[in-house]
């Protein structure tokens, strides 16, 4: 025992006797009979689990918790991106997306589909004013806006996309109608003819 040689003279003799007490602390009888078996069982169990894990996760050392954390992070990033984009569109800094095929504002087409939109394409003043409390709208985006189809009689009814395009082209030709996101939103309130409902025969 180490205490019995050079350290014995170091004045720790009493402590040496106390340490004998610690050596007497042993686990319950039979504890070590099963210990090795438990270790082997655990090893086998973990090997089985490892075999079930796909090779790409094993090679990357990815655990389920890490994958879940990554997925959560991606979702959060996506939501943040959508939120920021939506905010920018609503605040008028970015032009609302335009349908490539028809040249028609998406907000308007969504409105036409009966969903209603917030970027000035809202059918009805009440809805616009409710959203104004939540989001900051530029004054120009108020009812005099080009998209304020809600003022038109029969707003909310379905309007044929081709009919709108045809009408718009006629208006453009007369120089009274100018389509453009920012320009439209920030335009001075001028008397702009509202859409007429054109029902296909």
């Amino acid at each position: 025992m180490p205490f019995e040689n050079e350290e014995l003279t170091g004045g720790f003799d009493g402590l040496r006797r106390l340490m004998v007490l610690k050596r007497r602390e042993i686990p319950p009888p039979g504890f070590f009979n099963n210990f090795a078996s438990k270790v082997i069982f655990q090893i086998e169990a973990e090997e089985l689990v490892r075999e079930e894990v796909p090779w790409w996760r094993r090679s990357l050392g990815l655990s389920t918790a890490r994958i879940l954390a990554g997925a959560n992070l991606l979702t959060l990033c996506g939501l943040t991106f959508v939120g920021v984009s939506l905010y920018l569109v609503l605040s008028g800094d970015v032009e609302p997306p335009v349908n490539a095929g028809t040249g028609q504002s998406l907000s308007r087409s969504a409105d036409a589909a009966g969903f209603g939109t917030v970027a000035g394409g809202v059918a009805g003043r009440a809805r616009t004013s409710d959203l104004s409390r939540i989001f900051t709208f530029s004054p120009a985006a108020e009812p005099s806006d080009l998209n304020s189809a809600g003022d038109a009689p029969g707003a909310g009814n379905l309007i044929s996309g081709d009919a709108i395009v045809a009408e718009k082209e006629r208006e453009d030709a007369r120089g009274l109608f100018k389509l453009g996101g920012n320009r439209a939103l920030n335009a001075e309130p001028v008397a702009i003819p509202t859409y007429r409902m054109i029902f296909p025969r």
Binding site: K22, E25, I26, P27, P28, F31, F32, F35, A36, S37, V39, I40, I43
Partner: peptide, 28 residues
């Protein structure tokens, strides 16, 4: 073979951990 190694050193490893933690369950 690993079982033999575990049986050989289990008591010493357990004892060290037990004296460090002061708790049988933790040491186990």
């Amino acid at each position: 073979a690993y079982d033999d190694l575990v049986r050989k050193y289990q008591e010493r490893v357990y004892a060290t951990i037990y004296h460090m933690t002061g708790n049988h369950e933790d040491a186990s």
